[in-house]
Simulated scan of single mutants.
Amino acid sequence: MLDIVIQISLVMMSLALVLNLWRLAVGPSLPDRILALDTMYINSIALLVLYGLSKESMLYFEAALLIAVMGFVGTVALSKYLLRGDIIE
């Protein structure tokens, strides 16, 4: 039963990732694109965790943690650039 739920969740998260990619490409403004990129990080983390659950491997959880850290730093840097025009003060 859990395998079926994981497979359905993988399909739904993949669809969400594709829709976020569309928003990233077509987004009407730069903040919308930054938000779409941040949401893509979250969706990719969810995909890795679900795939790790299906394969019963801890390696995917470590990769998800690395993507979470890089996503946070990237979002902060892009937001700071958008607000001030400079990343390093």
Rank of each mutant, 00 (worst) to 15 (best):
M1E: 09
L2R: 07
L2I: 09
L2E: 10
D3A: 10
I4F: 15
I4N: 14
V5K: 10
V5F: 15
I6E: 01
I8M: 13
S9G: 13
V11S: 14
V11P: 03
V11G: 12
M12D: 12
M12Q: 14
M12E: 15
M12I: 15
M12G: 15
M13L: 15
M13T: 08
S14K: 05
L15S: 12
L15W: 11
A16C: 14
A16E: 07
V18N: 07
L19A: 07
L19P: 00
N20M: 09
L21K: 01
W22K: 13
R23T: 08
L24C: 05
L24M: 09
A25M: 14
A25Q: 11
V26Y: 12
G27R: 00
G27N: 01
G27A: 02
P28D: 11
S29R: 07
S29F: 05
S29P: 03
S29A: 09
S29D: 12
S29V: 07
S29H: 08
L30E: 12
P31I: 04
P31G: 06
D32S: 07
R33E: 02
R33A: 03
A36N: 04
A36L: 03
L37S: 05
L37M: 10
D38A: 08
D38Q: 09
D38N: 12
D38R: 03
D38Y: 04
T39E: 11
T39C: 09
Y41P: 02
N43C: 15
S44I: 05
S44V: 06
S44E: 04
I45T: 01
I45A: 02
I45R: 00
I45Q: 01
A46T: 09
A46R: 01
L47V: 14
L47P: 05
L47R: 05
L48W: 00
L48D: 00
V49I: 15
V49S: 03
V49C: 09
L50C: 03
L50Y: 00
L50I: 05
Y51T: 13
G52P: 00
G52V: 02
L53E: 03
L53C: 06
K55C: 07
S57P: 03
S57R: 12
S57I: 11
M58E: 10
M58Y: 13
M58C: 08
M58D: 15
M58V: 10
L59S: 13
Y60W: 14
Y60G: 06
Y60C: 14
A63M: 09
A63D: 04
A64P: 02
L65G: 06
L65Q: 07
L66W: 06
L66Q: 07
I67R: 02
I67G: 01
A68L: 05
A68M: 06
V69W: 03
M70R: 04
G71Y: 00
G71D: 00
F72L: 08
V73S: 06
V73R: 04
G74A: 04
G74M: 01
G74V: 00
T75A: 03
V76Q: 06
V76S: 07
A77L: 06
A77H: 04
A77F: 09
L78N: 03
S79V: 11
S79L: 13
S79H: 10
K80W: 06
Y81C: 05
L82G: 10
L82N: 14
L83G: 11
L83I: 14
L83D: 14
R84P: 04
R84V: 13
R84F: 15
D86I: 14
D86Q: 15
I87K: 06
I87V: 13
I88A: 12
I88N: 09
I88E: 09
E89I: 10
E89A: 10
